[in-house]
Amino acid sequence: MAEMTDGAALSGKPAGLSPAATEYILAFADDEHMVGARHTTWIGLGPFLEEDLAFCSIAQDELGHAIALYTVVAESEGAAGEAGVDQLALLRAPDAYRSSWLAEWPCNDWAQAVVRHWLYDTAEALRWDAVAASTVPQLAAIVPGAQREEQFHTRHAAQFMAQVCTTAAAQIGTAIQELLPVAHTVWLPPVDEAAALAEGVATRSFAEMEQDWQALVEADLSKWGLPAALLRGQSASEQRQTDRTVRSPGFTPFHQDLVEVFSIDPAAVW
């Protein structure tokens, strides 16, 4: 097992990827990893068995996306295979992660979990579209498979939300209010986004995509009979993510869980 790497280590230019491209892909990989890992905690506890199975499949897909994205970065650094992926996914210091608080948020309540699923996957679909024609060929190659899976995720989220918004609007409205402080963090741009866009890593800025996302989620809310304004306005929370180098309040214990077994014996292959 390699040692934990700090944030500064990421700023070194990896062979084949610019620092800006690395930051861009890691922001996506970390979001996919965190949301997949958080979804994982629901296995066996879904509200009914069919939903348990569906949500678990979504978690596995998101983790698969994370693995694919980490692999692009790891291979550019000459660290191929599972060890290279795990070095990036699990063994960085907290300040080296680039995830959004929306992805990191525990969502220990099912209403929050499904609202996060809807908000995040609506954003994720836009992000995959934005890298479909990436000048990083390894990144563009991941997109078709991810888009196929994402179609199911967004459809699942929409169908589930449509049902519960009709009959349990209060729970969903509360969950949206609870997630409002972190909902827009998924659109905090990657470090040095301008350089990544100039290189053609992606074809649209996070600011542009956020506008589309806002329109999509508001249209959904209207369709489901909830006020579109639910997701407008600034967070009143004192703790707020200002950029992707800042971790959410619950990140440290969550990360300690992720690396607990690794930490038992650094020489072990598990």
């Binding site: 990893h33 890992a37 994982t40 905690t41 296995i43 678990c56 978690a59 596995q60 983790l63 698969g64 994370a66 693995i67 980490y70 599972e82 992926v85 795990d86 996914a89 699990l90 869980d257 992720l258 607990e260 077994v261 690794f262 598990w270």
Partner: peptide
């Protein structure tokens, strides 16, 4: 959640 590796987490999931 504590699986020592992303692939292992997918497998156990």
């Amino acid at each position: 959640p504590k699986a020592p590796g992303l692939r292992l987490k997918q497998i156990f999931l």
